[in-house]
Each structure stands twice: as C-alpha cells, then as structure tokens.
Design a protein around this nucleic acid. Structure first.
Lengths: 266, 266
DNA sequence: CATAAACGTTTGCATATATCAAACGAGTTT
DNA sequence: AAACTCGTTTGATATATGCAAACGTTTATG
C-alpha cells in the first residue's frame, strides 16, 4: 500500500492501480505537493498526472487547496471502519484499557498482516506519556521480531507460517538489543512458547521494556497479541519477569473468551 | 472515497480510479466478499474483477484468505500517518486529553473536510463509556449541523464558505431535535458566533448533550473545533450553559496557542 | 513595463491496456 | 459420472490512457 508494490510476476494486472499507488506514495512521502512536484517524482507527464490528481481528488482520496495536494482525512474514517469490523478490536479494546489502567503504562492490541505487525489499539495508563516517536511507530507495520507482541505471535504460529515470515526477510536491528540472528531468535521463540509470554528488553526502543502474550482461538491459530510496555526503570525484577507477564496473559485470555462468545452469538 | 464518487463533468478523468473506488466500496459494504460476490455488485465481468482484486491485493489494499477479500489493516497505519501530519492533531491531542480528564466525559477534536466533519481524536474521561454507536459514528464524516463542534465551525467560517456548505446539502434530521430549517440554523449560528461556543441538545444522539468551540488561526480562518459531550443528565443548568462552555473555549484557546507556536518553529 | 519563465490546464492522436467472451482446471454437488 | 460452481487464464477488440504540444494565467525577471 502506497508504494511498496511488488513488480508483476507475469500474471496480468491493472497498471493504473500501480500508478495510483505510486502517486499516493509520493504524496505521502512529500506530505504535501503541487502538480509539478508530484509529476517530477513519477514517470508520467504533467498532463497525465493532472488527470490522476483530479480523479483522486474527485473520489475523495486527496484534498486540494491552492494547488497543493494532501492525503484526505477520509483515510481516518476508513481506518475506523476497518478497525470496527475487526473482531479482535471489538473483543479486545476494553481489556486493553483495563490493562493500561492496572499497570499505569502503555498497553497495545496488535494483529499480524503480511508478516508485519499492525497496532489496532493503544491505551495509555496514567504514567505513560505520549511521545512523537511512539506516534510515528504506528504509521508503519512493524517487524514481528522487534517487540514482545510480535514475538508472542511469531512463537505461536504454525511452523510453516512462521517459516514463511522468517524466510521472507532479513532480521534487521532496531536497537543494539534487537535479535538479528535467526538461530538465536528461534531459540527465544521456543522459550516464549513454553512460557506463554514474550519479553522485549530494549529491543525496539532504547530504554523501553515490554511484555506480550498471544491471543489464540480454540483451534489454536493466532489472532493477535496484547502487550504492556514501560520504561526499563519501572519494569524490573519480579515485576518484569513474573507479575506483569501474569497480568498480560490474563488479559489475553479474557480477550480469547470475548472472541469465542462473540463468535457464538454471530 | 469508496463509492461517493461523483460523475465526471465532461473533464477527462481516469476511469480506473472510479472502478477501484467502486470495488473498494463494495468490499467495505459487504465487509468481506469472494470474487463472485464482488463481481455481482460491479458492472464488470468476473475475469476483469479478478485482475483488479489481484492488483489491489498485491498493492496491499486488500487481504485475501481462502478466496475471501477484506480491506487491509494497512488503512489503519495510513490513517495514523495522515493524523500525525495534521498540525491540528499534534497541537490538540494533549489538550483534548486534559479536557476529557477535567470533565470526566467524552472530548473530541474535529476538522472539516468537504463540508463534513471528521474526528481526528477522541478522549474518554472516567465516566464516558464506549458504545458501539459511538464507534460507528466515526466511520463516516458527519454533517456539520448535527453537533456542537460542527456548528462551532460552521458559525465561524467566512460567509461564502458557510454558504457553499449549506447550499450543497439538505439539512436532514439525525434525531427529532436536529435543526432542519435553514433560517433557524442560521439564527442559531449567529448566536454561536456571539457566544463563542455552540450547544448540542440531543440533536445528534438522543440523550446526549454537547458543547463545542471553534479553533481559529490568527488570520481568523477556522482550523477545526473541540467538543465535550455527556449524557443530558450529567450536563444541565449552569454546567451546560456556562461552566463547561468556559472550559471548552479555554481548551480551544490553548490549542490555538499551540498551533501558533508550532507554526513559528516550522 | 515588457518579456520571459513557470504553472496548471486542455486536446488530438497513437498506442498501450482494460475488458469481454470463452475456455480451462479444480473442487463440489447431484 | 455428469453437471454444477468457483477462480483463473487467454486472444481479440474497443477504448481509455498517455504523450506532446499548445493554451491561458500567474509569477519572475531584465
């Protein structure tokens, strides 16, 4: 979405979709742009780009003010719809609020898509402060091996699903503590599976620790994960390795129950 | 966006954009669908729709599982980006949190786009409970005359901007208290302008009242609005007509200051 | 103040490409 | 085993897209 588009592998595709995606990607990257600015970044003439921009504006994907185009705020309303149609969000947001309140820290509800992690919901306890960095983190799907929630999911996927994800990417480092060695990661995941929870010790954000637990459905497949994160100074010893994991797993379990009952009711 | 697309008015457009928009609209409406189901709703053959779906999936707009297509969770991350690039959100979310905390109720930060209201941020105080209805409300841009924040903006737009919005739509009723008469609305807006805040007395949701105030920039133009909403039983008399308006206007003012300083720093 | 440059916009024409039928293989159902 | 459905592919065709070139405005420049 917006630029990450792969090349077509022989099978027929609609090229206009790729062009639209590229144009939206340019606008997203520039944040705002005039026709000329956008056309310079795309392999199309000004005249052609003009027609695209007009249509995209007409359809509500872009706003235009004095010749400056931006992504429309309507993406926010669409996202709201997508979120509300996600059973995991409906089953989990109250529990995540409770987790944030109990711990006083950040709590997250996440899902996996295309091998990456998307944050469905974030709740802040009284000690959790909103930072610019934290906001930006949710603008891009994250790598699963970067954080506790991701590792919790990765550890509990069916082996072939896990392999497909791990094989498709390099394990890049986010901080100096990120696990970048595949064998080491697989060892860790083994432990995560045994424990029922995953830890993140400054592997995603320097100075931040986190605890995550997977959310399963009866047949054993993974729906998502919950996590709690806090500055390392407030998450140490017993609290880090036993108390909080307990609470996080309890939260995950409550969400699993909600998912089941919701499913039963239709 | 997603289906509301107007017909082209003679000037040239990219038809594929409209087709993509229509397909995404169908999937949004169905929530999920197979190729055949989607193709039935669109004036294209199965073969053609198949090519579209493949491309949209490839580009990350759709997910596909066992032949069932859905809107991708990536819309959530894009929305996050759009929100974070909106100066109003950056300047306002902390203040809206404070407003929710001070009043214990719902607080909203909204902006106008294409004559409709989009919620940039919602904060819940300790007494505000999340309802399904409330969640759904944010899935669609709202009419400005339906609520306090919208009326606060509408009242303070430049006359021609206000006229353009009012002329483009019927004043439909959301509840039996919604103002549907244009003359009456214009009178109310006059009062709103004088007072500096707008009231909503069960005009959007039965049993809910709200208070809204506009957010301006130095040159007088409107950037958005803040509002506080609560059950009518908790928002009466002095509190409804004086205390809360005072707090809401104060919040709006703080956000205006934040916007200015942010602008100055670049 | 005139001229040039830059920008958004429109249009004719050539061609790439989106679309339709129709056929295919795989999986279900009868 | 035949008759359905479903997703998928493909050749041929119509047409929508994209380029180049021009236009009218606005903004720089000499």
């Amino acid at each position: 979405m917006f630029g990450t588009a792969k090349e077509t592998d022989g099978r027929r595709e609609i090229k206009s979709v790729h062009k639209i995606d590229e144009i939206l990607a340019v606008i997203k990257r520039l944040n705002e742009g005039t026709l000329t600015e956008i056309a310079e970044e795309v392999e199309l003439t000004k005249g052609t780009v003009h027609t695209y921009l007009r249509t995209l504006h007409n359809c509500g994907y872009l706003t235009e003010e004095d010749g400056v185009y931006r992504l429309s705020l309507q993406f926010i309303t669409v996202a709201e719809h997508v979120r509300n149609e996600t059973s995991l969000y409906m089953a989990g947001h109250d529990e995540v609020d409770a987790l944030a309140e109990r711990t006083g820290e950040y709590a997250h509800l996440v899902a996996e898509e295309r091998g990456r992690e998307v944050t469905l919901y974030e709740s802040r306890g009284e000690y959790a402060i909103a930072t610019d960095y934290h906001l930006r983190l949710r603008e891009t799907p994250q790598y699963l091996h970067h954080n506790a929630a991701g590792k919790a999911m990765l550890a509990n996927f069916a082996p072939d699903r896990r392999d497909r994800i791990l094989d498709a990417q390099e394990l890049d480092a986010q901080t100096e503590h990120t696990i970048t060695d595949e064998a080491e990661l697989r060892d860790t995941l083994e432990t995560v599976r045994e424990n029922g929870y995953a830890l993140n010790d400054e592997e995603e954000i320097r100075g931040m620790r986190a605890v995550g637990a997977p959310i399963r459905v009866p047949d054993g497949s993974i729906f998502g994960a919950v996590s709690m994160s806090a500055p390392a100074s407030r998450l140490q010893g017993e609290r880090f390795r036993s108390d909080v994991p307990e609470i996080v797993m309890e939260t995950a379990n409550l969400i699993e129950v909600n998912l089941e009952t919701a499913q039963r009711d239709g």
